[in-house]
């Protein structure tokens, strides 16, 4: 340890699927510069092997370790203990909201991933399309032949869905990450299919401007900005369809 160790209490919401949740407290000695995920792992390793949680990369790339830390959605692999408590303090850890709890801190994100797939979300994109349109282009250090590609910012961690008040009450709402994915794909390959997906009462129009998605996003995707920008596109499309009505789509025989 590089610092004087801290004594902290970690309170974790425990729950088996379908059973009533309860809170279990663990007393731990930690380095304040450790991450919250390190503390959770130590609880599993030395205190209770039945504790379940998701983790993989430990450097904010896989999006697996999203939890609520003191009520706020965080990627626990990049959230230092120092940033959420003090020596002698308490950290409360809960599973993400708006997803069914499978066990303890593990939530079922199956529906969310299926919705992402429906938007044809591709996690690799040309560099100029992967960034937010209002960001200034960064000069790439290494030039490759052809158009350089990179991973897009969204890591599908689900923090935005957990923080969204509209997703809290509407099962059908696709949520900020999916709408941001539709926007991202539309900027690369504009299509009527993507507009139709977004232009739905469970799509763009369910957002009620709380901006929590952008606040909690650990990757700078800015879903709220993307939702509002996509609304502009949908609005223009609707106006266009009034001036020049679209022909009905040909149905397969």
């Amino acid at each position: 340890m590089t610092n004087q160790p801290w004594q902290v209490q970690i309170k974790i919401q425990r729950q088996r699927a379908g059973e009533k949740p309860y809170v279990q407290a663990f007393a731990l000695e930690v380095d304040p510069d450790e991450y919250v995920l390190d503390a959770v792992e130590r609880i599993w390793a030395f205190h209770d092997r039945t504790l379940t949680y998701r983790h993989a990369c430990h450097h904010s790339t896989c999006g697996a370790c999203g939890m609520r830390v003191n009520g706020r959605e965080k990627l626990t692999c990049i959230t230092t203990i120092r940033s959420v408590t003090q020596n002698g303090g308490t950290i409360r850890i809960d599973p993400l909201r708006n997803f069914p709890v499978v066990s303890d801190l593990v939530v079922d994100m199956g529906d969310f991933f299926l919705r992402m797939n429906k938007s044809d979300f591709n996690s690799v994109a040309p560099d100029n399309a992967a960034r937010l349109p209002y960001e200034h282009p960064k000069k790439l250090e290494t030039q490759t032949e052809g158009e350089p590609e990179r991973l897009v910012d969204c890591i599908e961690c689900g923090l935005c869905i957990s923080a969204c008040p509209a997703a809290n009450t509407d099962k059908e709402y696709v949520g900020p990450a999916v709408l941001a994915a539709i926007h991202l794909m539309y900027t690369q390959n504009p299509s009527q299919k993507l507009i139709n997906q977004a232009d739905d009462h469970s799509g763009l129009w369910r957002c009620h401007s709380a901006y929590e998605c952008t606040e909690v996003c650990p990757s700078g995707v800015d879903p709220a900005w993307r939702i509002m920008d996509m609304r502009k596109t949908v609005f223009k499309d609707r106006v266009k369809s009034i001036i020049k009505p679209r022909l009905p789509e040909k149905k397969d025989a």
């Binding site: 709380a210 901006y211 606040e215």
Partner: peptide, 15 residues
Amino acid sequence: RWFDPRSRSLGTFGY
């Protein structure tokens, strides 16, 4: 929960 301001940002206060 719409009316719970705990651990929320300014956008939710507006909401």
